[in-house]
Structure formats: structure tokens, C-alpha cells
Simulated scan of single mutants.
Amino acid sequence: MKKILASTVVSVLLVANLGVNRGYAEMQSDSKTTGHVELVENFEFIDPRDPDDPTQPTTPEDDTNLPTGNVGPLSLDVAPKSFDFGEQKMYQTAHTYQGVQAEDSPDQYIQVTDNRDADVYGWVVTVRQENYLTSDGNILEGASIHIPAGEARCNLNPIPTEIDPTLTGESVEIALEEEKIFYPNVERAGKGTSILKWRSSEVALTIPAKQAKQGNYTNTILWTLTADVVY
């Protein structure tokens, strides 16, 4: 009779231990941590980038294209230093001149950075002459500077060294009226840093017939970046 009672007690203790183990397995303890960030507009100066790879800085020896000093969040960062056609012979017929040492000089480019809000998009770069080429009161009326369509790249393109089809570079004849030269062509394109590059050898000056007079002529080219949706 005593042996039976001892066996019964052991069985009860085993059941009780199993119940306690299941209770610990089901217990859970939690805590929470908050995250925080405040985003503000970016007025950082953007350095000139390599026109063949906008993710990389440009070569330090490039003095053909200069920083503009503009800051964001939407900024025109770089523009050509000059269009120099050197010393040329006069013609009284219409005549076109190529840039000085165009084959040996670096490519020219303009650079735009758009760091505005993600849902704010669209911009356009225009270009015009502020005045025709002038020398001591003589004006080359109707003279225009030709820029080819060029190649557009963006640092946000999956392969930034490849031409970006979401950006358009126009071939323009720069006169006194504004001409669109660079802009995104699809919705939400143009974010990050975008570059339009053209060959210096394809930049040309055309002087109309019966305008040429001796002189050392200069003028000013104005580039303008505007927030605008153009597609």
C-alpha cells in the first residue's frame, strides 16, 4: 500500500513541472525606441562633376568650364567659361567660324542640380545673347552662336556614364531671344545632378552678310535655369 502512494506522488510532481515550463515559453517582454529626422532645404554648393560620369568630380585642370557659384536646392552649377573664335579673316558674305583650338580643348558643358522635394519636379535651362558682338560702336547684327544637341547624363541614372534618355539637350542658335537648351522630358526626371555636354569642335559663330567691320568684338551669353515643367 505504501508503494502505491509513493508512485502517485511522483506522477503529480511531473505534471506540475511540465505546466511551469510551458508558461515560461509563452512569456514576452517589449520596449520601443523612437526615431527622428528633420529634413530642410539643401543650399549646399555643388562642385563641378565629370561630364562623362556625374558621380565623379571633374578633372582639376579643366578651366574651360567654370563653377557659377550658385547654390540649391535647384541650381545651375557650371557653364562654359567662354566661346572664343580668335582672330579671323573678314568676309562680306555670310560666314561661319569654328572655335579656337576646338579639337584640343576639353568638351564644354552645363550642370544642373535638383535637390528639391521629391514631389517637386521640372526645370529648363535657356540661353541667349544679352547683346550682339560689339566693338567700338560696331555691332555684328544677327550674328549667332551655334551649340550642338550634346549628350545628357545624370548621376541618378542606373548607369551614370550612359546617356540618359529622360533628359533632352537641344541644338540651338544663340541670338537675342531665349532658346531652350536643356530639360527633363518625362515626369519626375531631372533629380540629382544632370549634365549636358557638347563637343567644342561643333561650336560655331555665324556672321550674316554685309555686317563685318574690323574690330575686336565681345558679347555676353546668359544662361538661365527656371523651375518649369516642359514635357
Rank of each mutant, 00 (worst) to 15 (best):
T126Y: 02
S135N: 05
L222M: 10
G23N: 06
A204G: 08
F85M: 02
S75G: 11
D104Y: 07
G122K: 00
A209H: 08
V20Q: 10
S75Y: 06
P165C: 11
Y132M: 10
G35N: 12
V172R: 00
V127I: 14
S200P: 01
Q92M: 09
T168D: 06
V230L: 07
N21T: 14
I207R: 01
D84E: 14
E177F: 01
D119C: 02
T93A: 15
P208H: 01
I4K: 12
D117R: 06
F45N: 13
V230P: 02
S144Q: 15
K2L: 08
L156F: 04
L176F: 04
Y183W: 09
I139R: 09
T58W: 13
Q111W: 01
E202S: 05
V37M: 10
D164W: 01
S31H: 13
L74H: 00
Q98T: 11
L176E: 12
D164V: 02
K2S: 10
L14S: 12
D114N: 12
S31I: 14
T134Q: 10
A79L: 13
Q214G: 12
V15C: 12
E179I: 00
G72I: 01
N131D: 15
T113C: 11
L18Y: 11
L225D: 04
T218H: 09
K210I: 07
H146V: 01
P158I: 03
N21L: 14
G190R: 00
D30G: 10
A212M: 11
T93L: 13
T93D: 15
I145L: 05
D53K: 08
E177A: 09
E179L: 01
R199K: 14
C154L: 04
E162D: 11
I174V: 13
E151F: 10
P57M: 14
G35Y: 04
L140D: 06
V120M: 03
Q92E: 12
E87D: 12
L14W: 03
M90E: 09
K210G: 04
C154K: 00
Y217G: 11
G215N: 11
G72C: 05
Y217R: 08
K180Y: 03
L176T: 12
D77N: 15
I221D: 07
N185T: 13
F43G: 13
L66C: 04
D164M: 04
A79P: 05
E41M: 02
A143V: 05
M1N: 07
I195A: 10
N219H: 09
V78N: 08
T193L: 02
L176S: 13
K32P: 00
P80L: 07
K210Y: 12
T113R: 07
I159P: 10
G19S: 06
G190E: 04
F45T: 15
D63H: 05
Y132V: 07
E61T: 15
L167M: 13
R22N: 13
N42H: 02
E162V: 00
T134V: 11
Q56G: 06
I4L: 05
K32W: 07
G122A: 01
R199S: 08
A189F: 06
V10I: 14
A204T: 14
D84R: 03
I110L: 14
I139T: 09
E187I: 05
